[in-house]
Amino acid sequence: MRLTCPNCGERDRREFYYYGDAIALRRPAPDAVPEAWDDYLHNRKNPAGDTTDLWFHEAGCGAWLVVDRNTVTHAVHGATLAEKAKR
């Protein structure tokens, strides 16, 4: 599997650290109900198919990426910088 970093181009998967679902970008408000925090931290849609998740270009530019890919085929559709992603 290779990911295309917007800064560095196509790179080996081993340069990246996987964080998980991009739900991590949608942090609840500090006073949100406990269920909202449970959904944010634990509960997952966990799709078999297209998914959006967060990868850290640890051995490259150090950017966090939002990656669109497919969990069934391992196809990678594209990646954007997390700092530019809509919150």
Binding site: G20, D21, D39, H42, N43, R44, K45, N46, P47, A48, T71
Partner: peptide, 18 residues
Amino acid sequence: GRSGQVAAMAGMRLPIES
């Protein structure tokens, strides 16, 4: 391996990643 899909049929989201 398919817990998330079947649980979704009952309107649930599970604390599971595959």
